[in-house]
Design a protein around this nucleic acid. Sequence first.
DNA 1: CAGTGGTCTAGACCACTGG
DNA 2: CAGTGGTCTAGACCACTGC
Lengths: 260, 260
Amino acid sequence: MSTSPTAAADTAPSSTSSTTPSFSPLYQQIKSLILQSLHGGEWKPGEPIPSEIELAGRFRVSQGTVRKAIDELAAENLLVRRQGVGTFVATHAEQHVQYRFLKLVPDSGDIEAEGPAQREIVDCRRQRASADVARALALRTGDAVLQVRRVLAYRGVPTILEELWLPGTPFKGLTAERLRAWRGPMYALFETEFGVRMVRAEEKIRAVLPDRAQAELLAVPAAMPLLSVERLALTYHDIPMELRRGLYRTDTHHYRNQLG
Amino acid sequence: MSTSPTAAADTAPSSTSSTTPSFSPLYQQIKSLILQSLHGGEWKPGEPIPSEIELAGRFRVSQGTVRKAIDELAAENLLVRRQGVGTFVATHAEQHVQYRFLKLVPDSGDIEAEGPAQREIVDCRRQRASADVARALALRTGDAVLQVRRVLAYRGVPTILEELWLPGTPFKGLTAERLRAWRGPMYALFETEFGVRMVRAEEKIRAVLPDRAQAELLAVPAAMPLLSVERLALTYHDIPMELRRGLYRTDTHHYRNQLG
DNA sequence: CAGTGGTCTAGACCACTGG
DNA sequence: CAGTGGTCTAGACCACTGC
């Protein structure tokens, strides 16, 4: 029974035998086990995980405890519950919102009327990580990374210029051709083709002026202030997997944020 | 027993007698009742609400049902749970983070080392709402509003220029003097002196250039791109209570955002 | 109609805080 | 040590989905 949460008895929470500091609730242990299965690929994005009752049996805990673990994972957008159907591994593909991490919306607010973005891959090159890219991705300076640059346009108007870096090893085999051939969000391709699911991200936002090359790619005057959005995307266990630097036009769009 | 959630029996959830569409769980009804008490001022910011057992008795439901209602309110930052002590109404005062809605942080990341902001009230005037201010605050054009302008500086460097509008009626009596005399976050003053608690906010962010007056107040060149942050702050039941337009310097600071 | 997640209860016990 | 929130269980029943 290597699937039992700890060496503890059937029903009681642990923390009795070990010298664990502070105490860890049973449902947190269950949550960790589910997280391991997610990370390990036992259940893939879009697929259903076993039912609550089944998991309760496997882990030898009550359904309520499994439920609380799943509740938290669902709140973190790692799982998606569908009443009457089951619980599914969240995915960037087949989601209603095309880009889950993109918070730029048209000033009209009508994101539907605008339609999907036109995407143009500028280039995709293998290169050695600079000091700051390496630091962000938890690599060493000079390690192999992939650099991708692309432009997103809405209604034919170039609106977003993105430059992103991926660690070379997990993304071996990614080319401009594969990026161009892919229909759907880039993060969906990462999931499907490379088994890397972006779970969380942190953004640093600034106002900047473009350099000449950037202004040209976006077809804007060099004096137009742009939003600089630096995003670090993380996979399970907070492992950084992508550094992305975006330049957003904000004369027709704006970055929308909710504060709770 | 006017405190019972519905006219339903002691334990059973309702939705039996009425033609309510769709069905509303008991804990949601409890949540609404707690929300009413919060809005109505039965428990004030910083004060404890009754214990779960006491509320369960009052509402004639089980402790678990009250717990679930409180869980959601705590997740929305309306309540704060403290194990062994009780559950408290969230407040903008006496919080560790000085400004809960301000996401600008120094590039160093060390928000402590920077120390508190120096605040300077530029002016506080009574005026008539323009069309866009009225629309944001759900007033009519020409209704009385208060306009406040101020500058925040860190280490003596002016960093934020804010212009904000408040509905005249709830904030009657607010003056520049009272703002200057107040120590602590502005939202704490709103709570304490005017009984208005900001619960949630939406921000629209852009990159802009300052006009001459703005550049002067911030002591920056007119060509320096700045972050424009338009915030609509809402109180209970999503009633808009403040429109705030901020200009942030982002050469030494950045706007930090977490994407889940 | 079977199976899933969603709600609700009742009771036991645990961890934490304050006096 | 009394009181609070936090965890866990067991069981009943409800709402929703798909076949």
